[in-house]
């Protein structure tokens, strides 16, 4: 799975329009980012890439790109 494909999967799970997420968005400013979407992101990381992200790692993320960086090892270039 590529970075772009993961972004698209995130958009589908967050139920937002395709193209809403580009990567440089600040999580705090995103309407679709809350405690529930953090779980959705974790489930996707676990299901698609076999990565268990911790709560602490998510707290340290400021942008959508930061979330994707946590998965970098398993995302195809």
């Amino acid at each position: 799975m590529t970075r772009a494909e993961f972004l698209q999967a995130l958009e589908e799970s967050f139920e937002v329009d395709q193209g809403t997420l580009e990567g440089n968005e600040t999580l705090e400013d995103l309407e679709c980012w809350d405690s529930m979407s953090a779980l959705i992101y974790m489930a996707l990381a676990d299901e698609k890439l076999g990565i268990t992200v911790s709560g602490e790692q998510i707290i340290n993320c400021k942008t959508v790109n930061d979330l994707l960086d946590l998965l970098d090892d398993k995302l195809a270039a």
């Binding site: 405690s35 953090a38 779980l39 974790m42 268990t52 911790s54 709560g55 602490e56």
Partner: peptide, 8 residues
Amino acid sequence: MSGTDIFA
């Protein structure tokens, strides 16, 4: 409750 930590 830290929902993310509990889910992990």
